[in-house]
């Protein structure tokens, strides 16, 4: 296999706070090949969004980023200067955000904002940029695309704005697109449309995609790879089939029991919950972060947890498959 498009090793994000350092993201590793879709799943506050912003180099001031390696098509992002990052952002790696209502500048027309993405990176005329904008608005399923160019964000609905955001991300045909919960703020009826659109466009343009979500139903449909994030760590990563059919980490298994799966969950049966709350990540974080909510936790879980790798599948747990038989404990 050729070199992965994106390769991340030991990505760590620390946020200094008044009461100590918040270890928001710790030791993230993953690879993403061209055309592949990676879904990062996890609860709110698990560090999914921070991880994606770190990849784009869009972290807020005061957040400390470190990594052994973070390469995009051979370019080391950790040492890239701001000019280099700007030339990648929007051109070769693009991002779609969670809040379509506020992610467009209220003062400029849709056409201006779409064209800007192209004009910043390509030496094209204004007219050519607008033509490209129309083409992409049509591609994301917006009718009367030409007339939308002169409209302002406040004249569009949330679903339309998110389509505009997607079109904007695609202006320069990026090789990587990061979508951070792109449908969370939208009506349920629109969510499926937008996700299908993203998925289809990704396939069509052979883009690699990182889709951040907490909707496992979405993951099952679109992912090639899944990364399960908990309290700032990737507790389990692997191909989508393995994660759904043979989840190893107790957290992944717990998550999967929280959602009904077609053909797997019996009618009338109770859905699972994961008792407890996410631990504080301020100060030293040692051992397994999930141990306070894990039914299998022992004294050993307080010690260092090595990452176990089995082909494409990796997890951080010292009791792998052995405990699968007593899953019932989790739902109690």
């Amino acid at each position: 296999m050729s070199e992965p498009l994106l390769s991340v090793r030991n990505l760590t994000l620390d946020i200094p706070t008044g009461s100590g350092t918040l270890h928001a993201v710790r030791g993230i590793d993953f690879d993403l090949n061209r055309g592949e879709t990676l879904c990062i799943v996890g609860e709110s506050g698990s560090g999914k969004s921070l991880t994606s912003l770190a990849l784009m180099g869009l972290l807020g001031k005061g957040i400390k980023r470190s990594a052994d390696r973070m390469t995009f098509d051979g370019t080391e992002l950790t040492t890239a200067d701001s000019r280099k990052m700007r030339s990648l952002r929007g051109a070769r790696m693009a991002m779609i955000f969670q809040e379509p209502m506020t992610s467009l500048n209220p003062a400029y027309t849709i056409g201006d904002q779409l064209s800007e993405a192209l004009l910043l990176h390509r030496n094209v005329t204004r007219a050519a940029a607008r033509a490209r904008a129309v083409e992409l608005l049509e591609k994301v399923g917006i009718t009367a695309a030409e007339s939308r160019l002169s409209q302002y964000p406040h004249q569009l609905s949330g679903g339309l704005r998110q389509r505009v955001m997607i079109a904007m991300a695609l202006m320069c045909e990026p090789e990587l697109i990061i979508a951070d919960e792109p449908t969370t703020a939208l009506d349920v009826t629109i969510q499926a449309q937008i996700l299908r659109l993203l998925h289809d466009l990704g396939r069509e343009m052979n883009m690699a995609m990182i889709l951040i979500t907490h909707d496992l139903g979405v993951v099952a449909r679109v992912a090639d790879k899944v990364a399960v994030m908990y309290a700032g760590e990737l507790v389990e990563t692997g191909p989508v089939g393995e994660i759904f059919n043979a989840p190893t980490h107790p957290y992944t298994r717990g998550l999967l029991r929280c959602i009904p799966l077609p053909g797997k969950t019996a009618r009338g049966s109770q859905l699972g919950t994961i008792p407890g709350i996410v631990p504080s990540l301020v100060g030293a974080v040692e051992g397994c972060v999930f141990r306070t909510r894990c039914p299998h936790a022992t004294m050993e879980c307080r010690g260092p947890i090595p990452k176990r790798v089995d082909g494409d599948h990796a997890f951080r747990c010292i009791f792998p498959d052995g405990k699968r038989h007593d899953e019932k404990e989790l739902t109690a």
Partner: peptide, 14 residues
């Protein structure tokens, strides 16, 4: 601190 400023940066604006 608004979202559309983040969008502008994500586009690669200086």
């Amino acid at each position: 601190s608004s979202d559309y400023i983040r969008t502008a940066r994500a586009k690669g604006a200086n």
